[in-house]
Amino acid sequence: MMTPIDQIKQQLSQALQDLHKAFPLTEEALLVVGTSTSEVIGAHIGTNGSHEVAEVIYRELEQLHKDTGVQLAFQCCEHLNRALVLDEKVAKQRGYELVSAIPIRKAGGAMATYAFKKMKNPVLVEEIQADAGIDIGDTLIGMHLKKVAVPVRSRVKSIGEAHVTMAKTRPKLIGGIRAVYEKTDEHE
């Protein structure tokens, strides 16, 4: 019989496969991850953060990073103004301004706290423009996605007890009725 932790791992793995299929996650891509470990275990967001849940989610995401090269950013909770934990090298390469705080479970959330402890050179930044995102437990990651976010549907609707939403982004379509958006031989 599958344990709740095994179920969380399986659901997250499937959701990430579905996201990767819709939006190829590569070393050029930045994935924002918002997680309420409380919601995953069936509690109200921000009330019962779980180190064990954070660990299993982090391990799956770290494996995704190893497999694809995708860069990861973990959103903190509202008590740190939804700042993000990411690798210092990634933050500097992308020109993000660092902020001074260290997430803890009660101010940052269990997931961001766990990520901060496990990453080699973690830093906090106030905002990013991610290429794709996964929101586990309605943590509101939209503010950290590029301007045009497109929902990605998955066979997985929840991870544990938490609702899951995913998005990819695309460049803005500009112009009017005369604009062309795809290259064809006809338009050369």
Rank of each mutant, 00 (worst) to 15 (best):
M1V: 12
P4F: 07
I5P: 06
I8S: 02
I8T: 09
Q10I: 03
Q10F: 05
Q10Y: 00
Q11M: 00
L12F: 00
S13Y: 01
S13A: 01
A15R: 05
L16I: 09
L16E: 01
Q17G: 01
L19Q: 02
F23L: 11
P24I: 09
L25G: 09
L25D: 06
T26N: 14
E27L: 11
E27D: 13
A29E: 09
A29K: 15
L30E: 10
L31I: 10
V33S: 02
G34C: 01
S36G: 04
S36T: 02
S38L: 01
E39A: 15
E39Q: 06
E39F: 00
V40Y: 00
V40C: 01
V40P: 02
I41W: 02
A43T: 05
H44N: 07
N48V: 00
G49C: 07
S50N: 07
V53M: 06
A54F: 02
V56W: 07
I57Q: 07
Y58S: 07
E60Q: 08
E60K: 06
D67P: 00
T68Y: 01
V70W: 05
C77Y: 13
H79E: 10
H79Q: 14
A83K: 05
L84M: 07
L84R: 04
V85G: 07
L86D: 03
K89Y: 11
A91Q: 10
Y96L: 12
E97R: 14
P103G: 04
I104E: 12
I104Q: 12
K106E: 14
A107W: 03
A107G: 05
G108A: 10
A110M: 06
T113R: 01
M119V: 02
M119G: 02
K120C: 04
N121Y: 13
P122K: 10
L124N: 11
V125I: 12
V125T: 10
I128F: 07
Q129K: 13
A130G: 08
G133M: 11
G133E: 05
I134N: 00
D135A: 04
T139Q: 10
L140N: 08
L140W: 07
M143H: 13
H144W: 10
V148H: 13
A149H: 12
V152K: 08
V152Q: 10
V156K: 01
K157N: 08
S158C: 05
H163V: 14
V164N: 04
T165I: 00
A167R: 11
K168C: 12
T169H: 15
T169W: 15
R170Y: 14
R170W: 14
K172A: 15
I174S: 13
G176R: 05
I177D: 13
R178Q: 09
R178P: 02
E182I: 13
E182H: 15
D185P: 03
H187G: 03
E188Y: 15
